[in-house]
Simulated scan of single mutants.
Amino acid sequence: MPRKSVLVTGANGYIGSAVCRAFVRAGWQVFGLVRRLDAAGGLEADEITPIVGSLSDLSFLDSLFDHTKTFEVIVGCTEPPDYASHFHEAMAMFRRVAEVSNSSHVRPLVLWTSGCKDYGTTAVDGDPDLGPHTEVSPLNTPAVLSARATYSLKVLEQTDLFDATVLRPTNVFGYSSSYYGVIFEYAAKVVANGAKSLRIADVDPRSIMHAMHVDDCAEAYVALAEHGDRAAVFGQCFNISASEYETAEAVAEALAREYGLSSGAEFVAGSENSGNPSMAPALLPLLGFSQWVGSDKIRDVTGWTDRRPLFSQNLSVYRRSYEAAVRAGHEDIARIQGRQEFIKSALQNQ
């Protein structure tokens, strides 16, 4: 029996590579689109077939169709700064792949990645008005992400050649740790400066940090792709989140214990942080963007659930994994640092 095929864009990115590996584990034939030939080897090591090309030049599709002309699923896992141009180029490519698949009587399901920050923030832990963001919550997107939130929903309008679903995952951690790596970097800097406490400036300790392991996130993509009733999946949005959230205080206290800071964690005003290393630009949005994200919908529809420990519950393991990625010169480290600089610049220019 022939295996089903999936094409993943941004296959060497943090979420994209995890999604590729999850589909491999599920028995799919996985093709990963990357822009550079030197990124192909990493995909091959994970039993993923690399396709080298750019969305701005679709001539690479000839090499893709040499492998197969039918794709049951196409996954979009990229988020460049110029989101509008990227979206239009991606849709042109998706439509071409869908046309070829349609000619063999296969209608692809497109899983398009947006993010839970499309909703904006919620109240902090313990607030009487606290409630989770669900798929019916209004969008209150930060300006820096407004293009993503706007264009992601436009994929649902593409109904002639493929079915589409929008996914809104929370922040993810694990391995090279995505944006969570900056948390380790800050704690290490505090220790190097000889401090006895981990000082967190201008953050409410009750701020909700709702994140999950990247492997759990990737398994949610597979759960949607393999769901037997596509009518229950396409044309909709699905949040992906852990079953529990953490607070900035819980994460900071676990971090202080891990790094041997005898005075624990302190939450202070920025003016009280003299003598301590400055917080990295990406740390404040991580710790201070309070958001509880409900994922009952995907759990009820597909049966998916998260399995990995929360960040604070398994911090030592996640730290060692991140440090190993840094020593190995993992390309995610430089990519995330570049993304952090883009966010910092965008926030300063608002």
Score class of each variant (00 low, 15 high):
R3C: 12
R3H: 09
K4C: 10
V8F: 02
T9D: 01
G10P: 01
A11C: 05
A11K: 00
A22K: 03
A26C: 07
F31W: 11
F31K: 01
L33P: 10
L33G: 03
V34P: 10
L37T: 09
G42P: 09
L43E: 03
L43G: 00
E44W: 10
E47A: 13
L55E: 01
F60E: 00
E72Q: 08
E72M: 06
I74E: 06
V75N: 06
V75H: 00
C77N: 01
T78I: 12
P81R: 03
F87I: 02
S101V: 09
P108T: 10
P108K: 09
P108H: 07
K117E: 15
D125W: 10
D127S: 05
T141L: 04
T159A: 00
A164P: 03
R168N: 09
T170H: 04
T170K: 01
N171K: 14
V191G: 03
A201N: 07
M209Y: 15
H213F: 05
A220F: 13
Y221H: 03
L224D: 05
A225T: 03
D229W: 08
A232T: 05
F234D: 00
F238R: 00
E244S: 12
A248Y: 09
L255S: 07
E258D: 15
S262P: 07
S263E: 15
S271L: 14
E272W: 13
N276E: 14
S278I: 08
S278E: 12
A280H: 15
L283K: 04
F289D: 00
K297W: 15
D306M: 07
L310Q: 06
A324D: 10
A325M: 11
I333A: 00
Q337N: 13
G338S: 04
G338I: 02
R339P: 07
R339H: 13
E341A: 14
E341K: 11
